[in-house]
Computed example of a mutant assay.
Amino acid sequence: MNRSESKYFATAARMDEAFLKLLEKKDFTYITVKEICEKAGVNRSTFYLHYETVSDLLAESARYIIDQFVEAMPHDTAEFMSQIQTRPLEELYLITPEYLTPYLNYIKKHRRIFRTTLEQASVLGMNDAYLSLNRHVFIPILNRYHVPLPNQKYMMPFYINGIMGIVNEWLKENCEDSIEHMISVIQVCIPGHQFEESQR
């Protein structure tokens, strides 16, 4: 990366940081380009060099937060994915407290941006991230559980949208219910025996 590229990305990072700080204090719909520029110490033309709209900045900030979440996960994601075919089946049941606790903790810590991205999901086109997750993680897991192929395309959207629906409601309530309670709700809604029965 040359010096001009480094400066470009450093400026974008300042605007990301300014936006996230503003989002902690006010709703997304009330944040203006002017405020972002003032807080980041850049002019409007610099903002529009990087983004067309504040929604574009939101999308980039959301991706940054998600990337940070993946880095913060206590499990080696790459190792997990490479071992899907050999891991014991009970380790592939991804709604255990071991997997859900860090996930829910991170959402609670960054609840304002997660709530905003959920509210703006149609604008941001975040479904691509879920489709990628579905293709690379969940489908291989369903194969290990011998879930019939015709059923897979229906099951994973059901589970993913179900979990996201629960999380969305939790975010609307500012994550007031405990993480332990939320894990119990998710486990009641998505019982593991459905996967176990697929093996028979």
Score class of each variant (00 low, 15 high):
residue 1 M to W: 12
residue 2 N to G: 15
residue 3 R to F: 12
residue 5 E to F: 12
residue 5 E to P: 01
residue 6 S to V: 10
residue 7 K to A: 11
residue 8 Y to N: 11
residue 9 F to D: 06
residue 10 A to T: 07
residue 10 A to F: 06
residue 11 T to Y: 05
residue 11 T to N: 07
residue 13 A to F: 10
residue 13 A to E: 15
residue 16 D to K: 09
residue 18 A to K: 03
residue 18 A to Y: 03
residue 19 F to D: 00
residue 19 F to K: 03
residue 20 L to A: 09
residue 22 L to G: 00
residue 25 K to G: 08
residue 26 K to C: 01
residue 29 T to S: 14
residue 29 T to M: 11
residue 31 I to H: 02
residue 32 T to G: 07
residue 33 V to F: 00
residue 34 K to C: 09
residue 35 E to D: 09
residue 36 I to H: 00
residue 38 E to R: 10
residue 39 K to M: 11
residue 39 K to H: 08
residue 39 K to Y: 09
residue 42 V to W: 01
residue 44 R to M: 13
residue 46 T to Q: 10
residue 47 F to T: 00
residue 53 T to M: 05
residue 54 V to P: 02
residue 55 S to F: 01
residue 57 L to N: 01
residue 59 A to N: 09
residue 59 A to E: 05
residue 61 S to G: 11
residue 63 R to D: 05
residue 66 I to T: 02
residue 68 Q to S: 12
residue 69 F to S: 05
residue 69 F to N: 00
residue 71 E to T: 12
residue 72 A to L: 06
residue 74 P to I: 10
residue 76 D to E: 10
residue 76 D to A: 08
residue 77 T to V: 15
residue 80 F to P: 01
residue 81 M to Y: 10
residue 82 S to I: 06
residue 82 S to V: 03
residue 82 S to R: 11
residue 84 I to A: 03
residue 84 I to T: 09
residue 86 T to E: 15
residue 90 E to M: 05
residue 90 E to Q: 12
residue 90 E to T: 09
residue 93 Y to D: 06
residue 94 L to Y: 06
residue 95 I to C: 08
residue 97 P to G: 05
residue 99 Y to G: 02
residue 99 Y to M: 03
residue 100 L to S: 04
residue 100 L to H: 01
residue 101 T to V: 04
residue 102 P to T: 01
residue 102 P to H: 05
residue 103 Y to F: 15
residue 104 L to R: 02
residue 104 L to G: 02
residue 106 Y to A: 01
residue 107 I to N: 02
residue 108 K to I: 04
residue 109 K to T: 10
residue 110 H to L: 08
residue 112 R to C: 09
residue 114 F to D: 03
residue 115 R to W: 06
residue 121 A to P: 04
residue 121 A to T: 15
residue 123 V to K: 13
residue 123 V to T: 14
residue 128 D to E: 14
residue 128 D to Y: 13
residue 129 A to R: 15
residue 132 S to A: 15
residue 133 L to E: 13
residue 134 N to M: 13
residue 135 R to D: 13
residue 135 R to W: 12
residue 136 H to P: 00
residue 137 V to E: 10
residue 139 I to T: 05
residue 139 I to S: 06
residue 139 I to Y: 01
residue 139 I to V: 12
residue 140 P to G: 09
residue 141 I to Y: 03
residue 142 L to T: 03
residue 142 L to M: 11
residue 147 V to T: 04
residue 148 P to D: 08
residue 150 P to L: 04
residue 150 P to G: 07
residue 153 K to N: 12
residue 156 M to L: 14
residue 157 P to D: 08
residue 158 F to W: 12
residue 159 Y to N: 03
residue 160 I to D: 04
residue 160 I to C: 08
residue 161 N to R: 12
residue 163 I to W: 03
residue 165 G to W: 11
residue 166 I to H: 09
residue 167 V to T: 04
residue 167 V to C: 04
residue 169 E to A: 14
residue 169 E to V: 06
residue 171 L to V: 10
residue 172 K to T: 12
residue 173 E to R: 14
residue 173 E to H: 14
residue 174 N to W: 07
residue 175 C to N: 04
residue 176 E to G: 04
residue 177 D to Q: 15
residue 178 S to Y: 10
residue 180 E to W: 04
residue 180 E to Y: 10
residue 181 H to E: 13
residue 181 H to G: 04
residue 182 M to L: 15
residue 184 S to Y: 03
residue 185 V to M: 02
residue 185 V to N: 00
residue 186 I to N: 02
residue 187 Q to V: 05
residue 187 Q to S: 13
residue 190 I to N: 14
residue 193 H to V: 14
residue 194 Q to S: 11
residue 195 F to L: 15
residue 195 F to Q: 03
residue 196 E to Y: 14
